[in-house]
Design a protein around this nucleic acid. Structure first.
Lengths: 255, 255
DNA sequence: TCAATAGTGTCTTTCAGACAGTATATA
DNA sequence: TATATACTGTCTGAAAGACACTATTGA
């Protein structure tokens, strides 16, 4: 094995060279900015609401938009920055003022068409969050009240006026939560830690946008009770003429 | 309105300045590379298979991995590159040799933990694709046969040996298609354009990994027929002792 | 005629929708 | 006592699981 690079060492050398070139070129290729966008839902007064923020800067200055922000990326070999999930949790805490982990958060869909943002190429990983009815009023407390609002999904939100492609993201989120409502326990994330059957039904009705038969809903509820998914909690709710029994989701973290 | 920037013009100036700084700093912030990863399924001989490629280069050199590649991003103001969906379609066509649009393709989930790729920060948008049984044998034709293979999901795939976090991506895809099987028509994407009830049932069984009662499956099938979702096609399948009727999905594009 | 697969009928359970009706608290 | 809301009972039909059964073809 002399001058010509034909043997094992030669192959190894070529592989390393190719690797170097590949890595080098990849750094040179333009990369998109990556953001997280949040569709934060809550139900207050039997109405589904979504959290919007007013944009202070162009583009879409003054328009309402979904909250969101950039994923913090490191470029050091051993420090690549925060995960996309972490970025979503961080933004959710920043925008709502609620402690991290106190809301349900789930990845929704990734929106990656060119031209979404006129400034630069942005790929956005959208998440949806569910804020329980008792926490919703706390949200505006820590922030600039004029720049944050709970908008009614059914009436207030003028979809076409939302910034960027946020109307499409909102629609995707609505479809998702409406679909998941019947086969996953996400409705419990919209009510306080303890709740009456009527309160839970109101959450279902708000999300689906239609009234449900109270008797049939109660029967489904009885099934969950039998399965141990929910359990009765001490006390009664005194908000109406006849006090109602209070329940809690059995597998819910107590924060 | 003299020296102090207190009026309308002053606010405007500050806004532009802030905008400039924001844009400038954003360009300076490190960005992640964005890739698409593909989980390409097919069913042959009543067995669910996934397409794997052998890595020629480090990291994970020699390991099997899901096919994928970088999203092509432009940095010009008016040319931001291809969409993430387009990147997935392009990669699918490149890796399989099948014409664009001939397979079902759906976004799955975005994987964005730091350290996924030891070289640099990579956010990967995963998609799953379904290749019909008749197209599956054509896949290896155009590519380096030694570097591409259909691996049996149930037996062959050694999950822990897959490169990067591809085992997790594969599991996510499996959960997704198993869930969607019962409430969406994705099973039709796994069988040829015309198919017998037994062939469709074999596809269901392969995905779910369990046998189904033939009579009950036939009854569900009859419901689809009554709903106009599927319709009988001319001819009969002669592969077994007694020829079976042949059907086709009514709303399927004829490519 | 036999074996193998295509195809049918039926019993049971479960569950959802519709809706009539009862119970119990407050005002 | 009136009324609003909590809560119960029942009828119906659709759909799924289990499984016995018949029909039709090629070998």
């Amino acid at each position: 094995m002399g001058g010509k690079k034909g043997g094992k060492a030669g192959r190894q050398e070529r592989a390393e060279e190719r690797q170097f070139l590949e890595d080098y070129r990849r750094q040179q290729y333009p990369r998109p900015a990556v953001t997280v966008d949040l569709v934060v839902f809550t139900v207050v007064d039997a109405d589904l609401k979504v959290l919007l923020v007013r944009r202070r800067d162009p583009p879409f200055q003054g328009s309402w938009a979904l909250p969101g922000g950039f994923v913090r990326v490191g470029d050091a070999y051993d420090e690549q920055g925060e995960s996309v999930d972490d970025a979503a949790h961080r933004e959710l805490a920043e925008e709502t003022g609620l402690p991290r982990g106190s809301c349900y958060l789930e990845q929704l869909y990734t929106f990656g068409k060119p031209g979404r943002d006129p400034r630069t190429r942005v790929v956005s990983v959208a998440y949806f969050a569910l804020v329980s009815a008792d926490k919703a009023p706390l949200v505006r407390a820590g922030t600039d009240a004029a720049a944050v609002r709970w908008a009614s999904v059914g009436h207030e939100v003028n979809r076409s006026r939302l910034a960027f492609d946020h109307a499409e993201i909102l629609d995707t989120a609505l479809t998702r939560i409406r679909g998941k409502l019947d086969y996953s326990p996400i409705a419990f994330e919209l009510v306080p830690l303890t709740f009456t059957i009527a309160e839970l039904r109101a959450a279902y009705e708000a999300v689906r946008g239609e009234v449900l038969d109270a008797a049939n809903f109660r029967r489904r509820f009885a099934g969950m009770l039998a399965d141990g998914l929910i359990e009765q909690a001490p006390g009664r709710r005194l908000t109406s003429t006849k006090p109602a029994k209070v329940y809690r989701f059995a597998h819910r973290r107590p924060i």
